[in-house]
Amino acid sequence: MMKVTMATCAAFLALSTAAYADFQPVKSQADFVSVVTGKKLTRPLVELRVSANGAISGTGAVWDVSGSWTWKDGFFCRTLEWGGDDLGYNCQEVEINGGKIRFTSDKGTGDSADFTLR
């Protein structure tokens, strides 16, 4: 029984690592803009637009989201307001995998959020 459990855990970890590895880093502002231009970034209860001119807009749950972004030293750096609350400034690592985009806060060391590109 122990061997089956260990094999199951090893298989799960391998699949999890493989799924994470499929995401490729976005290295430049031009690449980022080409990925998000004309697309909605969606996840449950969230729909955002990130424009080439540096604006962020959309909704999160039932509240408006707005902000601005710049590309700095290989990171997506943004300010954000959600429902009138200032979420502050944060530089994030960006990765893509087909129709998915992942933002990882604190220059890639913090929490991640995956969005579908529509």
Results as ranks from 00 to 15, higher is better:
50 V>P: 00
49 R>E: 05
63 W>E: 06
47 E>H: 04
58 G>T: 07
62 V>K: 12
89 Y>V: 12
53 N>E: 13
51 S>K: 12
43 R>M: 09
81 E>D: 10
67 G>T: 05
87 L>I: 03
82 W>A: 07
89 Y>N: 11
82 W>P: 00
73 D>F: 08
43 R>P: 00
83 G>E: 00
51 S>R: 10
79 T>E: 03
83 G>D: 01
81 E>I: 09
62 V>A: 07
67 G>W: 01
64 D>R: 08
42 T>Y: 04
90 N>A: 13
54 G>A: 13
69 W>L: 03
49 R>A: 10
82 W>T: 08
68 S>D: 06
60 G>F: 03
50 V>Q: 02
69 W>D: 01
59 T>N: 04
48 L>Q: 09
91 C>L: 04
46 V>F: 02
85 D>P: 00
57 S>G: 09
49 R>G: 02
70 T>L: 02
45 L>V: 08
85 D>W: 03
59 T>I: 10
54 G>E: 05
64 D>V: 10
97 N>K: 15
95 E>S: 15
47 E>A: 15
52 A>E: 11
47 E>C: 09
73 D>K: 14
95 E>I: 07
82 W>S: 08
70 T>V: 14
80 L>Y: 01
81 E>R: 11
68 S>F: 01
48 L>K: 13
67 G>A: 04
94 V>R: 08
59 T>Y: 08
58 G>N: 05
57 S>F: 11
91 C>T: 06
44 P>N: 14
82 W>R: 12
41 L>A: 07
41 L>T: 05
56 I>Y: 01
87 L>D: 00
58 G>Q: 04
82 W>L: 04
41 L>S: 06
51 S>Q: 10
73 D>R: 13
66 S>D: 02
44 P>H: 15
90 N>M: 10
63 W>A: 14
42 T>D: 01
89 Y>W: 03
65 V>D: 02
96 I>K: 11
63 W>T: 14
70 T>N: 06
70 T>Y: 04
67 G>D: 01
45 L>R: 15
64 D>C: 05
63 W>M: 12
52 A>R: 15
96 I>C: 07
79 T>C: 05
54 G>V: 12
52 A>S: 15
87 L>K: 09
50 V>M: 06
54 G>R: 14
84 G>C: 03
79 T>S: 10
66 S>Q: 06
66 S>H: 07
44 P>Y: 15
87 L>F: 10
69 W>M: 05
43 R>E: 04
89 Y>R: 14
90 N>Y: 13
93 E>L: 12
83 G>S: 06
84 G>R: 02
74 G>N: 12
64 D>A: 15
85 D>C: 03
73 D>W: 05
96 I>G: 10
61 A>T: 06
81 E>M: 12
54 G>K: 13
78 R>A: 13
51 S>Y: 08
69 W>H: 08
68 S>E: 05
59 T>S: 07
47 E>W: 02
87 L>W: 07
54 G>I: 09
83 G>F: 01
61 A>R: 09
80 L>R: 06
55 A>T: 08
89 Y>H: 10
90 N>Q: 05
46 V>C: 11
64 D>F: 13
72 K>E: 07
44 P>V: 13
83 G>K: 01
78 R>T: 07
42 T>Q: 09
56 I>E: 04
64 D>K: 14
51 S>A: 15
53 N>Q: 14
72 K>R: 14
81 E>T: 14
68 S>L: 01
90 N>R: 06
57 S>C: 06
76 F>G: 07
60 G>L: 03
93 E>D: 09
42 T>P: 00
87 L>A: 11
